[in-house]
Amino acid sequence: MTMPQVAPISKLKHKDLLGISDLTPDEILLILDTAEAMREIGERPIKKVPALRGKTIVNLFFEASTRTRTSFEIAEKRLSADTLNIAAQTSSLVKGETLVDTALNLEAMAPDMIVLRHAYSGACHLLSRICQAGIINAGDGMHEHPTQALLDAFTIREHKKRIAGLKVAIVGDLLHSRVLRSNVQLLTKLGADVWVSGPPTLMPPGIERQGVRRTTSVDEAIEGADVVMLLRVQLERMQGAFFPSLREYFNVFGMTRERLRRAKSDVIIMHPGPMNRGVEIDSDVADGPDSVILEQVANGVAVRMAVLYLLAGGAEHETAA
């Protein structure tokens, strides 16, 4: 058995987590190793540690989210931080305030961290330049969703004991997916063999320059794969006609048990959620024995605790009190 890769460093040198592109392989492994320790806290009778006592964290969500927002909130509470949630529908945004003004007003109340989800790519980078508070990207447009990629890697490593050398097939709506961009960065940094597949109309141009293999044949992508990751067909982001019908999409790209026979016998099936059953994934596969989709959700809390702790507590930029 290959030993798990272990981080030789003990802190992150960042104020923010804007994307996987800013992280070194050592930093990624540090987050995954710290998440191992964090997961144990969720198994205790008292699921709370005092590590972030007195820290204020604002969850600023400008896009619909159940999983990510709840997951961040549970992670923050388990670390004893004070949290508050702001959803776009109930904020002054509906009165016409800009993102920058909202952020500056929040900043005036001195939160320690802001967890931001926004429909525009780069919104977190904008905030990180104007805010003292640490910014954690919880998904920005079609750009990155770093904590999702980290929890995916955590789940893969748990099952396969390694990431380097694994064949990972990512299938679905590649064009609109921030999960894809973060996962490609992370998995290639840790040495996985990443294949991407989907309709040519939903294939970002130049994706192969990021060190992945692209194919429009799903069967080729999942042949001998250790991990099959399905991405949601993001109907809400589609303004054009990218494929004829959902039924046709399912017939050509949908993951069925039949099709999965091409993958390794111990393949794991992943999906970042929310799933469109009968579009990118058959219910048989989603609820089948190879599916780790709900484990991904459970691991999300531990991974987000690790990120919050390492940014709030461990970062070098903090000046000594």
Binding site: K11, A37, A306
Partner: peptide, 24 residues
């Protein structure tokens, strides 16, 4: 593992931040 219970988390009184390990 007592890392998450320390009172010097933000102070760095004793060198670098220790790695958080599992409590068993």
């Amino acid at each position: 593992d007592i890392t998450l219970y320390r009172d010097d988390l933000m102070r760095h009184a004793v060198g670098p931040q220790p790695l958080v390990r599992r409590t068993e």
